[in-house]
Nucleic acid binder design. Structure first.
Lengths: 158, 158
DNA sequence: GTGCTTGCAAACGTTTTGCAGACTC
DNA sequence: GAGTCTGCAAAACGTTTGCAAGCAC
C-alpha cells in the first residue's frame, strides 16, 4: 500500500519558469523559501536539453543544490520533494534500479531503459496512450504511465 | 564442468517442484545446500494461491525461511536471490514503492498496482504481448514486461 | 503571531561487503 | 581437493524522523 494520495492536487499545468512554479506553490498553500527556490532552479536546469534528461535522484539534486547553496540540508531536499509532489509540481519515477528520480510535473514522460547499456528512450505519447486505453477498457484500470520505467534492451543491444 | 555464474542464463522452463528447480540449479553449476533448498521452498509456498501472490520482498522471504531454519542469515538470503537470478530460476520485480519482490521465474507475470488501495492486478498476457510488439516495431526496443509494475488506480478506486 | 519550513543529528530499513570456516561436488 | 557457499560483523546506501530555532505570510 502506497502513501496516501488524498492530499495530492491536480498536476501543474505547463509552467515554464521557476517563478511560474513558485506562484503555483503559493497558490496551493506552500511558502516560498530560498531552499525551495534553489531546488526548483536545479530541477529546471536539469531539464535543459544540453544538461540532462530532466530527472535527478535526490542525491544528485542535493549536489546540484549545494553548488548554489551549500547549507541546504539533505533532509530539506527530501522534504521539499515530498511537499512539491503533494502540490503537484513535481513527480517522481523509478528508472531501473537505484533510487527514484524526480522531475518537473510539466515535463513528465514515460521511459524505456536499456538494461545492457543504460540508455533511456522516451516513450512516444501514442504508445503510452494506447496502453492506457487498453488497461482502461480491459481491466478498468487507470494507469499512471510516468511512474515506472519499462526495462528491456534497446535496438543496439539486442 | 562448472559454469561461470557471471553470465545470466536463459530463464528456467516451467518447473513445478522444488526438486525440479534444484536440478536446474545443479545443471547450471550451482550447488544444492540446505539454505538454498529452504529459500526455494519458501518461494514455492508463497506461490500457492491460498498463501500469497507469489512474490515476496527479501525481508518477507527471510522471515518465511526463519520459520524452518532460524539460523539462515539475511545475507545468505540476498546472496541466494542473486545467484538464483543469475541461474535464471528466480526473477525480481519492482512493485510500487518499497523493496523489490522476488518470484519463481516460471511464474513471472506483469502487474498493475492500485496506488490507492494497494490491490495488485495481473496483466493479461495479450496486453503484455501487444505492448511488447509495439515497443519492438516502433522503437526497436525489446521489453522485459515483468520487471516493473505499472501504477495507477483500479476500477473501484477511481 | 501563526504555523510552515529549516538545519542538525540520529535512526531507520534494505542491501552489500570482507572474512574465515564449512560444505558440495 | 577445488571452489562454492555460509554465518557473522560491519558498513554502505537512500531515506525518514524528532526537535528547537527560523522565517514567510
Amino acid at each position: 500500500v502506497s502513501k496516501p494520495l488524498s492530499a495530492q492536487t491536480a498536476l501543474a499545468p505547463a509552467a515554464s519558469t521557476v517563478e511560474d512554479v513558485l506562484a503555483l506553490v503559493r497558490a496551493r498553500g506552500g511558502r516560498v523559501t530560498s531552499p525551495r527556490r534553489v531546488i526548483l532552479e536545479a530541477l529546471f536546469e536539469a531539464a535543459q536539453p544540453r544538461v540532462g534528461a530532466g530527472h535527478l535522484t535526490a542525491p544528485q539534486l542535493a549536489e546540484a543544490v549545494h553548488h548554489r547553496a551549500p547549507d541546504v540540508h539533505m533532509s530539506t531536499v527530501y522534504r521539499n520533494l515530498d511537499d512539491l509532489q503533494r502540490m503537484g509540481v513535481v513527480v517522481h519515477s523509478h528508472m531501473g534500479h537505484g533510487p527514484a528520480t524526480y522531475q518537473l510535473a510539466s515535463l513528465a514522460h514515460a521511459h524505456f531503459i536499456c538494461e545492457a547499456c543504460g540508455a533511456t528512450v522516451e516513450a512516444p505519447e501514442t504508445l503510452v496512450r494506447e496502453l492506457a486505453r487498453e488497461a482502461q477498457t480491459e481491466l478498468g484500470f487507470s494507469i499512471d504511465p510516468y511512474h515506472f520505467a519499462i526495462l528491456g534492451r534497446c535496438a543496439a543491444c539486442q
